[in-house]
Simulated scan of single mutants.
Amino acid sequence: MDRVTHFHIPAENMRRAKIFYREMFGWEFMETGMDQDYTMATTVKTDEEQMPLEPGAINGALFLRRRPEESPSVVLSVEDIQGYVERVEKAGGQIVSPVAQVEDFGLFAEIRDTEGNLLGLWQDLTESD
């Protein structure tokens, strides 16, 4: 079974959003250096690789809203992202953004389900990829 591993929350004002989530829920934020419009959000303690220490816990990110219709989304980890993307339309969904590599970390694509919800798909890169 594939699992939710990450979330994305759009923000019109990153500073304001970080203050809100820090004050409301105690979240911490870390700049990735990859994109200043994208900030990692830590909701639970992590190890040295920034992975949650609590079983089943997830962390996420804030990103600068580029379009008014952008909304929060969840990201699911899958073993074969290309296989999932190939099945999206057959299952009644649509591909929003094709598979793209994110530095040396993994592969990412966005899809919409049959209800119009945005979902991210993520595949970790291995040494053989």
Rank of each mutant, 00 (worst) to 15 (best):
D2I: 13
D2C: 00
R3D: 11
V4E: 03
V4M: 12
T5E: 10
T5N: 08
H6S: 02
H6I: 02
H6W: 15
F7I: 02
H8D: 14
I9F: 03
P10G: 11
A11E: 01
E12W: 01
R15E: 14
R15K: 13
R15C: 05
A17Q: 03
A17I: 00
I19T: 14
Y21K: 11
Y21W: 13
Y21H: 00
Y21N: 10
R22F: 06
G26D: 10
E31I: 09
T32G: 03
T32Q: 10
G33N: 08
M34F: 11
D35Q: 00
Q36G: 07
Q36F: 12
M40T: 04
A41S: 12
A41W: 02
T42F: 15
V44Q: 05
V44W: 10
D47E: 08
D47M: 08
D47H: 08
E49N: 15
E49F: 09
P52Q: 15
P52Y: 08
L53E: 14
I58A: 12
N59K: 04
N59Q: 08
N59C: 07
G60H: 01
G60I: 00
G60P: 11
L62N: 04
L62E: 01
F63C: 08
L64E: 00
R67S: 11
R67N: 09
P68E: 06
E69M: 07
P72A: 09
S73Y: 12
S73T: 06
V75N: 02
V75W: 00
V78N: 13
E79Q: 11
E79A: 13
D80C: 07
I81S: 00
I81A: 06
I81Q: 01
Q82G: 05
G83H: 10
Y84C: 10
Y84T: 02
V85G: 03
E86N: 13
R87W: 02
R87S: 15
V88M: 03
V88H: 00
E89L: 00
E89Y: 05
A91R: 10
A91Y: 04
A91G: 08
G92Q: 10
G92R: 02
G93C: 10
Q94D: 10
I95W: 03
V96E: 09
S97Q: 15
P98K: 04
V99N: 01
Q101C: 01
V102H: 09
E103L: 12
F105D: 11
F105C: 08
G106P: 11
G106D: 03
L107I: 13
F108P: 01
F108E: 08
D113W: 02
T114L: 03
N117G: 07
N117T: 11
G120S: 07
W122R: 07
W122G: 03
Q123R: 10
D124F: 10
D124R: 05
D124P: 06
D124C: 00
L125N: 07
S128N: 11
S128F: 15
